[in-house]
Design a binder for these strands. Structure first.
Length: 800
DNA sequence: AGCACGCCGACT
DNA sequence: GTCGGCGTGCTC
């Protein structure tokens, strides 16, 4: 037998299977979907590969090398997954190997170790005895004897043992430090006197210990009780022997919720929606629903009851949520409904945690999967319904190979599993809404808020006329006054800084030169906190210069509004306000995002200041004011989706104000008060926006009236890059119909990144039967052209 | 990615 | 003559 194997070659210069001989010892063990180690190249170095297919013969019959080792006793990818990989590779012009790897948890891409657990002790003569490290637990040796492997597999089939996998790098059991008080009440009194009055944190800690002598917990637990406490105070307290610290094993899935939640009473609209969806789950029909519901209209309840219906029918369910909306609040709500049947996949998990969840899904222990983009590949069997919440979110599209859109993958899977798909949003993408218009999707609308909560009062503030706070160009007196009022009333505010297409750069006032990245054609961004200039494309970093590098003038200043700058200004204007800043800088650390949200949710701050990420799916009942500092910066982007993005952002952020019993107010500062996107977002009027925007897309010949494909080439030499893109254009033009439009070739908006030059062209088309094959052909030929990189992006969300 | 093969210029 | 620079192509 011959095994055709997709090999993981780092450079990914090849996209076809390689044939290998199956040694006799592995004869009936090798199956498609298994990972194997094979010798590759002249040196015969071992590489990991996926068995793609089995075959009887090979045209390389005399050159065949044998498979060296199998890494799985059961395939990690079933036939459905392999077929999906083939489809995905073709659909996104990607390499098969990259598709196979994105479908697996990271842990399986690297080395891992295998263990087995026994249900009962083995008999003394069992060949597995040498592998045991405890009576019921054994370890696979690095080089497993194939006969032994066969034996283990047989025992697994008989249910005598189960096989567990662990990642070798993460093999160490996760440990956390737990701090425990050592002081008695009397000792605390003594220390309180002995400690200097300006040692604020230490006094804080002592006072807390006085009232909680037995308090024990991790750093996170302490911080929850004493938000101001720094970690170093705890460590120094250990040194002074006030506290003892101890390493304790922590489990990867600590959360098991005691509380349960049952289904809510449905509104009439929610009932109508479910009455349409549920029969399709029962009938196993591949029907797509577009659930268009204003913020707070209870879309989630519809999802949850649809998931429940799938489970009742003995099927599984998949729910996709944007990464940013995968908050503990959100996850807990699903867990409370479905308890242990839920598996959660998100980027906050370590490789080990993620793998544990993946295994639970694969074994069928978890029947409901909640996760971000890549969870669409979750190894669920017999899917009954797929939900995509906030379906318009751009984060569903992956920006690297394979450039898939989770929505398209979901539609593919629904056709295999014969199940309905629910796309939900308050502001659907025009593509989806247009398909609903044409009847390809069924439109379901939720227009009312259940608890009769009223929509917030939205005021559009014309910044051309408005009084501005003296010395500040970005803050109106109205907004400042409103902030002061909330502060006085003890209520919370959210401030959105729309930073899309807007950054903080440094320019010389004498010669007008902007400081740019030496590797890329882009200005460097000022980061006040680390006192450095940073390139957001290649990561280049340099200190802030004192004089202009071109003319040596001292008149170099920063321009633009950054969150750090606004935070400083606000703090100066509102000295008593507790301001929390949320942007890439403050959330990059693991869990930083969740920590800020938690802090704000517990009302430990008065103002939450941040970029787009504060707009998504957060629910803070105490917030009564939402301010948008610059509504229109995203309007001026050279992107036909600029209005759509602005509308979505403003609609979402406006929905954040006053959701419970308190009335909310929204202040939108803008230089384009008459713009339709801004006007209609203020009214939360999606349908009118949809019609108007569709009209403009029609006039401009943009999606959803046309499909788009971006073809981009890069090379270290600019002239070669330009030549190549024109050559590609000449190749493609003859096979295109007269209806297709080719835009470009042009240099990319940022034409040089990391010392590579980028040129692109965009094809707009309706129906081009020959185009895909030609592009497929192009990926093949370009592999042979060294130094060039080709990128083909179907339906790109960013045209740069 | 590696690594061999091969074509060219510079050197003991 | 021969050593070694790196551009090019292959790996079942």
């Amino acid at each position: 037998m011959i095994a055709q194997i997709i090999i993981d070659i780092p450079a990914q210069q090849t996209n076809r299977p390689f044939d290998y001989a199956i040694p006799e010892a592995l004869d009936h063990l090798v199956q498609p979907g298994m990972r194997v180690l094979v010798p590759f190249g002249r040196q015969g170095h071992l590489r990991q590969g996926f068995v793609w297919q089995l075959a009887d013969t090979s045209e390389f019959k005399d050159k065949l090398k044998p498979i060296r080792k199998i890494l799985d006793l059961e395939p990690v990818l079933n036939q459905e997954a392999l077929d999906m990989a083939a489809w995905l590779a073709k659909d996104t012009f990607s390499f098969l190997i990259s598709c196979l790897q994105t479908m697996l948890p990271n842990a399986l891409r690297a080395n891992y170790q295998r263990f087995f657990s026994l249900k009962a002790p083995l008999s003394a003569d069992s060949p597995l005895i040498p592998l045991l490290d405890s009576p019921l637990h054994g370890k696979f040796p690095a080089q497993l004897d194939p006969k032994l492997g066969q034996k283990i597999k047989l025992l697994e089939q008989q249910g005598v043992l189960t096989i567990d996998y662990q990642v070798s790098q993460r093999l160490g059991i996760k440990k956390v430090l737990v701090y425990r008080n050592l002081l008695t009440a009397a000792m605390i009194q003594a220390q309180l006197i002995a400690t200097r009055a300006n040692a604020r944190q230490q006094l804080l800690l002592l006072n807390f210990l006085h009232d909680h002598l037995t308090f024990t917990g991790t750093w996170a637990d302490w911080q929850e009780q004493l938000p101001e406490l720094s970690r170093s105070t705890l460590t120094s307290a250990v040194k002074k022997q006030w506290l003892a610290s101890q390493e304790v094993e922590s489990y990867r899935r600590p959360t098991s919720l005691e509380t349960t939640e049952t289904a809510h009473q449905l509104t009439a609209e929610q009932q109508t929606a479910l009455a349409a969806i549920n029969p399709q789950i029962v009938a196993q029909q591949q029907q797509v629903f577009l659930l268009e519901g204003i913020t707070g209209s209870g879309k989630t309840e519809v999802y949850l009851q649809a998931l429940a219906e799938a489970l009742r029918k003995g099927r599984t369910a998949l729910m996709l949520v944007p990464e940013i909306a995968l908050t503990p609040q959100m996850v807990n709500r699903v867990r409370q409904r479905f308890q242990k049947q839920v598996a959660v996949l998100h980027s906050g998990l370590s490789a080990g945690e993620r793998f544990d969840e993946w295994r639970r899904i694969e074994r069928g222990e978890a029947k409901v999967v909640v996760g971000a983009r890549s969870a669409v590949f979750a190894p669920l069997k017999n899917i009954g319904v797929i939900v995509i919440d906030e379906e318009h979110e751009t984060s569903y599209k992956q920006t690297e190979m394979p450039r898939y859109h989770a929505r398209d993958v979901a539609l593919y899977r629904s056709s295999i599993h014969h199940c309905p798909v629910i796309l939900g949003s308050a502001t659907p993408s025009l593509e989806s809404r247009a398909r609903a218009q044409k009847g390809r999707y069924q439109l379901l609308r939720l227009t009312k808020r259940p608890q009769a909560a009223q929509l917030p009062q939205v005021n559009i503030l014309d910044m051309r006329q408005a009084d501005k706070v003296s010395g500040k160009t970005s803050l109106s007196v109205n907004l400042l006054t409103a902030l002061q009022q909330r502060l006085a009333a003890g209520e919370q505010s959210i401030l959105l800084l729309n930073r899309r297409g807007y950054a903080n750069f440094i320019m010389c006032r004498d010669c007008g030169q902007v400081i740019k990245c030496p590797n890329c054609d882009i200005s460097l961004t000022l980061h006040q906190d680390i006192q450095a200039l940073k390139c957001h494309y290649c990561g280049h970093q340099e200190p802030i210069p004192q004089v202009c590098p071109h003319c040596h003038s001292r008149q170099i200043r920063s321009f633009g509004v950054g969150t750090q700058r606004v935070e400083q200004d606000l703090q100066a204007l509102l000295p008593t306000a507790r301001i929390l800043r949320m942007d890439v800088d403050t959330t990059s650390k693991k869990g930083g995002h969740a920590r800020i949200i938690k802090k704000f949710g517990q009302h430990q701050a008065d103002i939450l200041l941040g970029t787009q990420m504060i707009a998504k799916g957060l629910d803070f009942p105490e917030v009564t004011l939402v301010g948008v500092i610059n509504a229109d910066t995203s309007l001026s982007l050279p992107d036909f989706r600029a209005s759509e993005r602005t509308f979505q952002l403003l609609t979402q952020v406006s929905g954040r104000a006053g959701r419970a019993n308190k009335a909310g107010e929204v202040i939108v500062q803008t230089y384009n008060p008459d713009n339709y996107a801004i006007q209609l977002a203020a009214k939360q009027d999606y349908e009118t926006f949809y019609r108007q925007e569709m009209h403009l897309r029609h006039l401009g010949g943009y999606p959803p009236y046309y499909y788009t494909i971006l073809v981009s080439v890069s090379h270290a030499q600019e002239d070669l890059t330009a030549q190549k893109i024109f050559q590609i254009q000449r190749q493609l033009l003859p096979i295109l119909s007269p209806q297709a439009v080719v835009l470009g070739p042009v240099p990319q908006m940022i034409a040089r990144i990391n010392n590579r030059y980028y040129y692109q062209l965009i094809i707009k088309y309706k129906q081009e039967p020959k185009l895909f094959a030609a592009l497929q052909q192009l990926t093949q030929t370009m592999q042979k052209e060294s130094g060039f990189q080709l990128r083909i992006d179907r339906e790109p969300l960013q045209f740069s």
